[in-house]
Design a protein around this nucleic acid. Structure first.
Length: 755
DNA sequence: TTTAGGCATTCAGAATGAGTCTT
DNA sequence: AAGACTCATTCTGAATGCCT
């Protein structure tokens, strides 16, 4: 029977049993159960170990494996229990001098690795149906193996949104009831539950059981909504039996909430690791995906009022959110399933897991291929090392500048020089500028992983070109190639992460050292060819006077460096301040691109960002500093005339740690403390919005929560000088205009004549 | 349960220094 | 004349969020 693996869990029944939740092509849900005995490895004095294991009555076998490429003799020990880690730790205390590995891997993960199975893929399952439980067909599994690739089966999804609020401050589960539950199923059914809280929670549970969705999707489910629902249900004496076979949600790994038999997918986790999003809200996420859906915003502090005076608006608000969540999910569904399949992590927590764990999960599945043992996770002190090379930009305006980028520089270097933890060797023939040496062959673990990924991506992209654009197949392929790219690009960073199982500072250090050498020699060659290098950062060079020479440089990079570089874009005009990593340009298409400057930073006021953007735009479009100055002055005038919306004065800053851990007094922290004392919940990751008000004393004493400030309290001069003039001044100074010029009014006054 | 390092920038608060007053 | 005090300036570290 061909079944698609939705999720899995382990159970204890006189030894571990793996419960595989699967979907058939016809939409039927199957639960396949299979007995499984996990194992771990011992290395060291094996003869002594063997004696001890026999005394413990454990089954084991001798085998040859590798540790970081070095062949070792090991004992593979089978232990019929779920709590492998604790058990082995205890065992090790009786066997000093022996090392264990692969005992600190969860049983479900071990199972998938051992059998070479992946979630979100089709499997061939042999077994006997032993009954139907709660609509689920249960299978006693005999054999299970990979099956051929095919699109996923139809899956039923439901979007969930809750409305809760506090009379004062954030809602608290011990006090504030759930007011509204909105469910939006992907077959179009919509439900809004409102009224007596016990009743609506019960209805929610029965609707979940009746419609039996495979996927529950929401925004903020893991962080907030499930625990709130759980707490409220508990207080009302209701079992929140929304999982299959009547299970309740439970906290799982990576800060994820698990619901038995269903995928619980929180799009907030996905929003959080999209770098383009500076504010991780549903509104921004939906906008980023380019989804056309109406979303009225109600701020948290307004919810209570609207509930009292305009309840229709709240219902509409929640309905819109649920619809947006469902639409967003449909847009990213294939990506999530692909990432799950590729990394081997179940789809409901692959989003919650950070980049490092995703890479690691991918690598762990490759380890058995070469007999590489999976190292245990250890805590190692973090030592930093040199990274990419950044060349000081040439200040001012430049015309006609080409940007040349290396294509996946670090992955290419890792492959080219066979950089890997298992090829690192004092007699290696590839010698990095950092002095580290790597053997040229056999192919290392990381280069092999990267080659596989890059080839896979090329293969998918080829198929993608053949597929009809906009088709389901094209969508799936595109999602998959993006998943592959993400993992490939994260491998270098993984090797420098001290928490990684395969942490190798040598690998990371050698990679960046070769990278610096490559970019430095490229700069030299470009100059030799008569080009002028305006700026360079890590794997890109900005070139002037490139016509007729660029091709030669690209060819040289290919022939001499064995790497690939590509003309990324051409700026008709570009401006650099003296600062690195900050510039703005206009492409030949007429598009304005601002990089690193205040205009793209989330911790500057809207007015400063807008003013700087407009100043830059005027400068780039006309090439005339006077026009830019004029534009900047308009914003100063507007502020001084108090003609600016309060919203544009809000400065947002993130709370990055518990408030008590701050050593410096800062405006947003002071405001956060104040809000907290008023009953608002503020956690690391939250953004606090404040406005600077007039008065004396340090800034932090004049910062107020944005929703409490009126126009006559504002310190307008602060916004003129420290926000707008500071941001615009940076641009204008680069073209020889002094900041003070912005603060003067356009017309000359009497005072000008006297000074 | 945090992939890496490089970088600019702001603000608070300490350190420094010049100038003035007091003893 | 030496020391105490005030006020302005300079320097340093903490913190944030960007770039590749």
């Amino acid at each position: 029977m061909r079944l698609w693996l939705l999720d899995l869990a382990s159970e204890q029944a006189g030894g571990p049993v793996i419960a595989l939740w699967m979907k058939a092509g016809d939409g039927v849900t199957w639960l396949a159960k299979v007995r499984y005995t996990p194992s771990f490895y011992l290395v060291g004095d094996l003869d002594r170990a063997a004696g001890l294991l026999e005394a413990e009555n454990l089954r084991f076998e001798r085998c040859s494996r590798r540790i970081r490429g070095k062949p070792v003799e090991a004992l593979r020990v089978y232990v019929d229990r779920e709590d492998l880690e604790d058990y082995v730790e205890k065992l090790l205390r009786k066997m000093p001098g022996l090392e264990a590995c692969e005992h600190d891997i969860r049983v479900t993960v071990k199972y998938l690795i051992d059998l070479g199975l992946r979630p979100c893929s089709w499997l061939e399952v042999d077994g006997v149906e032993v009954g139907v439980e709660d609509g689920v067909r249960v299978l006693e599994c005999r054999e299970i193996r990979e099956s051929s690739e095919a699109p996923p089966p139809a899956l039923r999804a439901v979007a969930l949104d809750l409305v809760v609020f506090g009379e004062k401050g954030s809602p608290r589960a011990e006090r504030d009831p759930i007011r509204l539950i909105t469910l939006h199923f992907d077959d179009g059914r919509r439900v809004q539950l409102e009224g007596d809280e016990a009743e609506i929670i019960k209805s929610f549970i029965s609707i979940m059981r009746e419609h039996d969705p495979d996927i529950v999707v929401g925004f903020g489910l893991n962080r907030f909504q499930w625990s709130y629902l759980g707490e409220r249900a508990k207080r009302l004496g209701i079992r929140l039996a929304v999982g299959r076979l009547g299970a309740e949600p439970r906290m799982s790994v990576h800060g994820h909430v698990s619901i038995r038999g269903r995928l619980n997918i929180d799009l907030e986790d996905m929003a959080r690791d999209i770098p383009e999003l500076t504010v991780e809200t549903l509104e921004e996420f939906v906008k980023y995906l380019g989804i056309d859906v109406r979303l009225d915003t109600i701020e948290e502090y307004e919810l209570g009022d609207f509930w009292e005076h305009d309840r229709m608006k709240v219902r509409e608000y929640s309905a819109q959110r649920a619809e947006a969540i469902l639409k967003a999910f449909n847009a990213v569904r294939e990506f999530i399933l692909s990432l799950s399949e590729l990394t081997g992590m179940p789809a409901d927590y692959v989003l919650t897991a950070s980049a490092g764990f995703r890479v690691e999960s991918y690598l762990m599945r490759l380890a058995p291929r070469t007999g590489e043992l999976i190292p245990r996770r250890t805590e190692i002190a973090h030592i930093s090392y040199p990274g990419g090379l950044v060349k000081e930009p040439i200040r001012g305006i430049h015309e006609d500048v080409a940007v040349l980028d290396f294509r996946s520089m670090y992955p290419s270097l890792i492959i080219k020089y066979n950089i890997s933890f298992d090829t690192l060797s004092d007699d290696g023939e590839n010698i990095a500028p950092s002095g580290h040496r790597f053997r040229a062959r056999p192919e290392g673990f990381l280069p092999s992983a990267l080659k596989t990924l890059l080839e896979e991506r090329r293969r998918i992209q080829e198929k993608l070109r053949a597929a009809a654009s906009g088709s389901v197949e094209a969508k799936i392929l595109d999602a998959r190639q993006r998943a592959v790219k993400i993992i490939a690009n994260a491998i270098y960073g993984y090797t420098g992460w001290s928490g990684a199982r395969w942490y190798s500072r040598e690998v990371a250090e050698a990679t960046t050292a070769w990278g610096r050498e490559v970019i430095a020699s490229t700069i030299r060659k470009a100059e030799e060819l008569g080009m002028k290098v305006i700026y360079s950062d890590t794997d890109s060079v900005f070139l002037k006077n490139y016509h007729g020479k660029l091709e030669k440089l690209i060819e040289w990079i290919e022939m001499e460096l064995g790497l690939e570089a590509k003309l990324e874009k051409v700026f008709k005009r570009i401006i650099f301040t003296e600062a690195k990593k900050r510039y703005a340009g206009m492409t030949i298409g007429g598009e304005i691109e601002v990089v690193g400057l205040e205009a793209v930073r989330g911790d500057w006021s809207g007015i400063a960002r807008e003013a700087q953007y407009e100043t830059v735009k005027a400068l780039l479009e006309t090439g005339d500093p006077a026009q830019a100055l004029k534009r900047a002055r308009e914003y100063v005038q507007a502020l001084r005339g108090r003609q600016v919306d309060l919203k544009k004065l809000i400065i947002w800053k993130q709370i990055t740690r518990p408030l008590s851990e701050y050593s410096a007094t800062q405006p947003h922290v002071v405001v956060a403390k104040q809000l907290m004392s008023e009953g608002w919940r503020i956690q690391p990751g939250d953004k606090v919005g404040f406005i600077i008000t007039a008065g004396s004393g340090p800034l932090y004493s004049r910062a107020k929560p944005y929703f409490k400030v009126s126009k006559d309290e504002v310190d307008w001069e602060y916004y003129v000088e420290k926000q707008v003039a500071a941001a615009c001044g940076r641009i204008l100074e680069a073209v020889g205009i002094k900041v003070e010029k912005i603060l003067e009014s356009g017309e000359r006054t009497l005072i000008d004549f006297f000074s």
